[in-house]
Every structure is written in C-alpha cells, then in structure tokens.
Amino acid sequence: MKAKLGVLAGFALVLIALFIFMDANGNWDYVLPRRGKKILAIILTGGAIAFSTMVFQTITNNRILTPSIMGLDSLYMLIQTIVVFFFGSTSLTMINKNVNFAISVSVMILFSGLLYKFLFRREGQNVYFLLLVGIICGTFFQSMSSFMEVLIDPNEFQNLSDKMFASFNNVNTDLLNLSIVCFGAIILYFMKFTKYLDVLSLGRDAAVNLGVDYDFVVKRLLIVVAILISIATALIGPITFLGLLVANVAHQFLRTHKHSILITGSILISIIALVGGQLIVERVFTFSTTISVIINFVGGVYFIYLLLKGKK
C-alpha cells in the first residue's frame, strides 16, 4: 500500500516539475512565480475537492455521489450572473476580488447551512433527500441565471462565460493566501473526526453500535464538506466531476478501506489529474479549452463506464 502511495506521489512530483520547468528558457523571474502560483492553486483545490468527496461518499455510504452536485455550482454562477447583471461586467474585474470571493463563499455556506438545518429538523433524515433537494435548488438557480444571461449584453456575457469554467490561468495571489488560511483552519478542525471515518463506512447502525455519536459527527463533517467545496468553487470555478473521478480511481487503485490511505491517495490522484490536465490544456490544446471541460468529460465517461459495469 505504501508503495502504491509512493508511486502516486512520485508521479505527481514529476508532473509538477514538468509543469514548472518545461520551456522555462531561463526566464526564472517571470516563470517561477506565475507557475508556482498555479501549482499552489491546483494543489489546494484538487486536495480540497478530493478530500471532501471522499468524506462525503463515506457519510452517504455511496460511491456514485458527489457533494458538487448539491447546487453549489449553480449558486456560484447565479451570484456571478447577478453581479454582472446589476453592476455590469466591469464590476467583475473592478470589484476587489477578495470581496467577490468572500461574498460567494459566505452565500454558498449559508445556503448549505440552511439546507442542512431545514432537512435535519425531522428525524430519520436521509442524505439522499438532502442531495436531491440541493439539486433541485440548483436547477432553480440555473433557471434564474440563464434567464438573466439572455438579457445581458453579449459583450458583457463574454466576461461572465469565463467564470463558467474552472480555470487556473488567472489565480489571484490574495485569494490564494486567504484560501490557504481557511483550508488550514478547517483541516485542524477536522483532525478530531478522522478516526471516525473508517467506522462510518460501515453504515449508521454499525457506527452507533461502536459508540460513535453519529448525528453529531455527520453534521460536522457535512459542514466541513460544504465549506471546502464552496472555497474551491469560488477560487477557481466549478469542476463538478473531479471529485467523483478521483475518489473512484482511488478506491479502484488502492483497494483498501482505510481512510488515511484513501484520502491521501485521492488527493495525490487529484493533483495528478489537474496538473496533467493543465499540461494538456496548455501544450496540446494550447488554451483552446479549459481544464474543467476536460476533467468533466473524462470523469463523466469514466463514471458512466463504472455505473454500467457495476455488479447486477
């Protein structure tokens, strides 16, 4: 198992090195900070998404779900659309990015908080139910934004459509620092829950039997997941199927139930996918497509394959 993780780590490092040093031609002062920032953003978001999907799948005891479909993506797009709709496209670039980031993250966290509160009021809560309501809210947000998009000036629309797809091409340093702090705090908070993950994967009854305060732990973990997804989305944009892709690859490749290994593995796979994807975007497609489009495509196809080959 250690060997497999080692292979993943090595592969990730090689890709990162390739990404940073390829075609640098000695322009270190220019190239290094730019690419370094991209890599940092990739590691952060990739890690956060992989981590939260893994935790989420363990809580739901289901490998075909991802927290990204809970409507947060659509909500993020709605917020961006509203900003452009009411303040014009220049505001997206003019407004302090930190403000936009803070507003987006807080609205998304507020939304998930309300969703949880609303659904966990009754007993026998069902995470599937939560997710379905989330998706429907997502459709609702989407209807709203696509309506506004029709009314927006085509020139301004261009600015907005850049936001529709995740991209590492323009990562703001200030946001990066802010996100690192947020992630750090959340990871610290999460630490005391790590030990429960293996047990939670046995299902609710078994976990309660083994003395886990199930409702308490699951609620806290869901909040952690929502915050991580919100920050990742606000930082680079929506990548719906990244989590799904890497969590399933991690399960297939590592074939273990231990979350310490699974989570580390999925974070590494996530970094490999994103750095590899970004290399393809820059070198093969020469920026004619974006990383999220590729990842969603590959992730989606892989996932349909998984669903169809699943046991009867």
Partner: peptide, 18 residues
Amino acid sequence: IPLVGLMFGNIVSSITTF
C-alpha cells in the same frame, strides 16, 4: 433513483459542453 438520473444527465451535458 432520480438522483442517479440527474447525475447521469449532468454527465451527459458535461460531455456536450466539452
């Protein structure tokens, strides 16, 4: 089941987007 269907739909539209 509708959850799986919605996921499936999302995946198909992500391929469309590609």
